[in-house]
Design a protein around this nucleic acid. Structure first.
Lengths: 149, 149
DNA sequence: TATCTTAATGAAAGTCAATCTCAATCAATT
DNA sequence: AATTGATTGAGATTGACTTTCATTAAGATA
């Protein structure tokens, strides 16, 4: 699915205004970076990336602060929590999906399953629970790693 | 479901022997504690508990090491990963279940849904992925917290 | 455009869960 | 009882993440 970056940034700017927050270069830089990143990422990875740039640098604090902000905005999500690492992904323009995580090689496989989503909603109704978001991680061994042994 | 503690401990002892590990007092103490604990827990909670005992103390290192061991043995599971906290539960004798987590009050609701489990297995077959364990966390607001506002 | 207000930023210190190190201790085999 | 090797505890260390606070920049106002 194609995402219009300008449209996204406009929405983000409106979001910031609504919250009386400022449209800063760092924030726009990070949304640019993430929109073009194209893979799962960890925050420290971004920290290193922006620290290695010669032109405009963004500090670790700002990266962490902006990641939290972009999560609230809804552009990124924590998708895997394993050991003491958090793996994020940029979700704009992607349908909701869950993940298979290979504990051997670390590969992450995304899958979409509408039935599982519906059953979850059903469960929430049953408990009168209002869901905001969820995370389903299936840990196991991928076919390639199983072949290797 | 009732669990036979002695039977569990015997299995654990066999498990240790198979791995050339020793049956130590600390390990048996911790399995005792957890079997009678009766609620979700964090490791630091146990560390404090065993540190406050006057009779036999167990160090932080040993608690963490034993928690990892009991996870491999299959007696406990990481069920919630939120912020930088890990919440565990003792799963012996309980059917597999997933969790609704209230982000307001922290309440944890367990639910069993066989259909979701089956669909997950189906997805794994589709990707030729061998599942070892999984974690489904649904974050949202429970009915009580919704009433309060 | 210059001025002003207030939010954002960076650098460094701080926090906290979890792991590691290594000398001393204990389990269990002989 | 002696031997071997795993386990333990205390404290240091790591690593992700947050906080602090002085400085800087956004953007509203005149």
């Amino acid at each position: 699915m194609k995402v219009n970056l300008n449209q996204l940034k406009d929405e983000f700017k409106r979001y910031l205004k609504r919250r009386n927050m400022k449209i800063t270069q760092s924030r726009l830089d990070l949304i640019d970076l993430l929109a073009s990143y194209g893979r799962h990422f960890e925050v420290e990875e971004l920290v290193n990336w922006v620290a290695s740039r010669t032109d405009r640098r963004v500090s670790r604090s700002t990266v962490y602060r902006t990641i939290k902000l972009l999560q609230e905005f809804g552009a990124i999500k924590e998708v895997i929590k394993q050991n003491n690492r958090t793996i994020y992904e940029f979700v704009v323009g992607k349908p909701h999906h869950d993940h298979l995580v290979c504990v051997e090689c670390g590969k992450i496989i995304e899958f979409v399953n509408e039935d599982i989503e519906n059953l979850q909603d059903e469960v929430c109704r049953e408990y009168d629970f209002e869901p905001m978001n969820h995370r389903l991680e299936i840990f196991g061994i991928c076919s390639e790693c199983r072949k290797q042994t």
